[in-house]
Amino acid sequence: MNATVPRLVLSILSLDLPVRASRERLLEMTGRYREAESLAVGLVKALDAGAEAVCAVPSAPLRGALTALKKPLPVLARLPLTPPALDLREDHWLMREPRERNEAGFGLEGAAQRVALLPAAITGDVSARVAARIDQESGAWPTRSRAGLLLCAPVTDLVLAAGHARALERLLRHGRSRFGLAGLETRNPGWLLARLHEWGIEPDFVLAPIDPLGTAMTPDAETTRAEMQRGSVRLLASEVRGGGPTALEAGARDALDRGAWGLAADLVELSDLSSDLRGLAAMLASRSR
C-alpha cells in the first residue's frame, strides 16, 4: 500500500479552506479557479508538470472539473468536510448526526467495515461519527478518482489530544476500505509523529506543515524535526513556505533534508503552477530513496 503514496501532491485546499497565506493571495487563487473549467486546466497542467495526486475537498467545482477532464484524476480527499461556516455553531461540528438513513451506515457498500464499527457506534465513539460522515460526504465522489483518504486535521488532532489511539486505528482501517490509502492531516506534527510511534500505528502517510522557520511545527521545531528524523512515517510536507516568508525551493529542500517523504504544495504557494511543480518534481527525482 505504501508504495503508491505520492511524493508530489498539488494541494487545492486553499480554494475551500482558510490556509496560512495572505488574504490577497487567497482571494487571487479562489478567483482564478472559481470555475470548473479553469480548475480543470490547472489540474491538467499540474499532472503534466509532475504532480502525482491532488489533495482536495470534494467540492462541487472539483467534481465539475473531474467531469470536464473525462479521465481519472488521483485525488487525496480531505474528509470529513469542515467548511469555514462551522465556526458560527455553538456545538462541536461532529455532534450533528448524519441526516439520511443510508448516511449512518445501512447501505451495502462496505458492510463488513460497518459491522466492525458497530461497537464504536453503540458506545458513542467518535470514530463511528466520523466514519459515517466520510461515507456520507464521499458518496457522490467518483470511485475512479479515489486515490486516498486524508483524515482532516480537526479529527486527527481531536483524538490525538484525547489520546484515543483506537479511534485512529479504526478510522485508518475504514479509510483504507473505502479509498485504498488512508493518511492523517495534522496541525500538530511533532505530537502526532511521536504518538504514532508510541502507539505503533502506521498511517499510509501524514500531511503536516513543515517549514524552515518552524512556523506551525508544534510543540516546537526541534521536537518535530527529531521526530521526522525517525523516518517511520511517510510525511508529506505542506506549507513549506511558512505562509510566505520562505522561498518555495528553500522550504521544500529543507523539508526533504529533514526527512519528509514528499511535498504537498498548495496553489497559494506556487507563483507559476507548471514551472514550480516541475522544479519540485526535479528536486524529488534527484533524491534517491
Partner: peptide, 14 residues
C-alpha cells in the same frame, strides 16, 4: 511587520 515571523503561538494547535 509581516505575519509569519513567529513560531507556534501555543504548544498544541487547536
Amino acid at each position: 511587520v509581516a505575519a509569519g515571523e513567529w513560531g507556534p503561538q501555543a504548544p498544541f494547535e487547536a
